[in-house]
């Protein structure tokens, strides 16, 4: 069972991407091949293996609760594609 075009279209919304019909076809094939390839992991019995999210087994890394200066607003907003004097601006956020 490969990846279906519908699934790819659904994931494109999840990932906030948008593709032409042609691109969707190509992607369905390409992603399908990769998915097919990675499925070879299924042949391994990993029942008793713990997942390894981090290579190090370090833990409890904290910083002290000591405030430090923030960026000044101009520096914070400098890279914004759309802004006013105080805020970032985006197309209306609906139905909050």
């Amino acid at each position: 069972m490969g990846l279906t075009r519908d699934e790819v279209a659904k994931v494109s919304l999840l990932a906030r991407l948008r593709f032409s019909d042609e691109e969707l076809d190509t992607l369905t094939t390409q992603l399908g091949q990769v998915v097919e390839y990675v499925r070879q992991l299924e042949e391994l019995d990993t029942e008793s293996v713990l997942p390894m999210a981090h290579v190090e087994d370090n833990h409890n890394i904290f910083a002290d609760d000591l405030p430090r200066p923030s960026l000044n607003r101009e520096d914070a907003l400098a890279n914004a594609p759309k802004r006013d004097d105080e805020c970032y601006r985006v197309p209306a956020v609906l139905g909050d």
């Binding site: 990675v38 992991l41 299924e42 391994l44 990993t46 293996v49 713990l50 997942p51 390894m52 999210a53």
Partner: peptide, 9 residues
């Protein structure tokens, strides 16, 4: 999760 397990192996 499967990949994380194989990663450990």
């Amino acid at each position: 999760v499967k990949a994380l397990k194989v990663r450990r192996l």
